[in-house]
Every structure is written in structure tokens, then in C-alpha cells.
Amino acid sequence: MITHIVFFKLSNPTPEGIATVREKLLSMQGKIAELRHLEAGIDVIRSERSYDVALYTRFDSLDDLQAYQVHPYHAGEVVPLMKSLCSSIVAVDYEG
């Protein structure tokens, strides 16, 4: 199993913008067959080091993660929106 975690820091972290990011991430459910698990949460601590939104996804294999990365919905709709709204996006991928 591959876990893919991404953190998003918005350029302008308004409640509306944060909600838009979370909703768009959750909209991938049911559209990308390789996704085995999908969660998106909004940070509740709001410290200086916090990111605004976290994405937690799981895949059966690295090949499935790669298929997700280039899937038309992810690459064509989700990624461009995230890039337009975020000042920083970081990710970690691990097996286990």
C-alpha cells in the first residue's frame, strides 16, 4: 500500500478559499478508480507553522499513484486550482 499525503498553504487563507480547496480535493472521490482512500481536512490549530489543508490518500501500488498523478481529472482540474490558490504545496509518499 502507498500513502500519499499533501499539505496546502493558501496564498490568501480565507474560510471560503480553504473550503473551496477541501471541496475540490474531496470531489476526486469516485472519479479516480485508483484511489483506495481519500480524506481532506482543514487545520484547526492555525499556528504559524501550520498548513491550511491536508490531503491523505492511499493506493495499492506505485503504478496506481502514478496513474492518479496523470489522471485527467486530477491533472486537468484539481492541480491547476491548487496551484492557483496556494503559495506552498508539499507532499510525502511512503510504503506501508
Rank of each mutant, 00 (worst) to 15 (best):
M1R: 14
M1F: 13
M1I: 14
T3L: 15
I5K: 03
V6K: 03
F7Y: 11
F7P: 06
F8Y: 09
K9Q: 08
S11K: 09
N12M: 07
N12V: 11
N12P: 05
P13F: 07
P15M: 09
E16N: 12
G17A: 13
G17E: 04
I18L: 06
A19K: 08
T20I: 08
T20R: 15
T20W: 02
E23P: 02
K24Q: 14
M28P: 07
M28R: 06
Q29S: 14
Q29D: 15
I32Y: 07
I32S: 05
A33N: 08
A33K: 13
A33H: 10
E34F: 10
E34A: 08
L35S: 06
R36C: 14
R36P: 06
R36Y: 09
H37E: 15
L38P: 10
I42L: 07
V44C: 09
V44Q: 12
I45H: 15
R46Y: 11
S47P: 00
E48V: 11
R49E: 14
R49P: 01
S50A: 15
Y51M: 06
Y51Q: 04
D52E: 09
V53I: 10
Y56E: 10
T57G: 12
R58V: 11
D60Q: 05
D60R: 10
L62N: 04
L62R: 06
D63C: 04
D63P: 00
L65R: 11
L65A: 06
Q66C: 05
V70N: 06
V70K: 05
V70A: 11
H71F: 08
H71I: 12
P72R: 11
Y73L: 14
Y73W: 15
Y73C: 09
Y73V: 12
Y73T: 07
H74E: 12
V78Y: 06
V79I: 15
P80F: 12
L81S: 06
M82I: 13
K83D: 10
S84T: 02
S84M: 07
L85T: 01
L85K: 03
L85R: 01
L85W: 00
L85M: 15
C86T: 04
S87P: 04
S87Y: 04
S87G: 08
I89S: 00
I89L: 01
V90E: 05
V92W: 01
D93C: 06
D93T: 04
G96A: 11
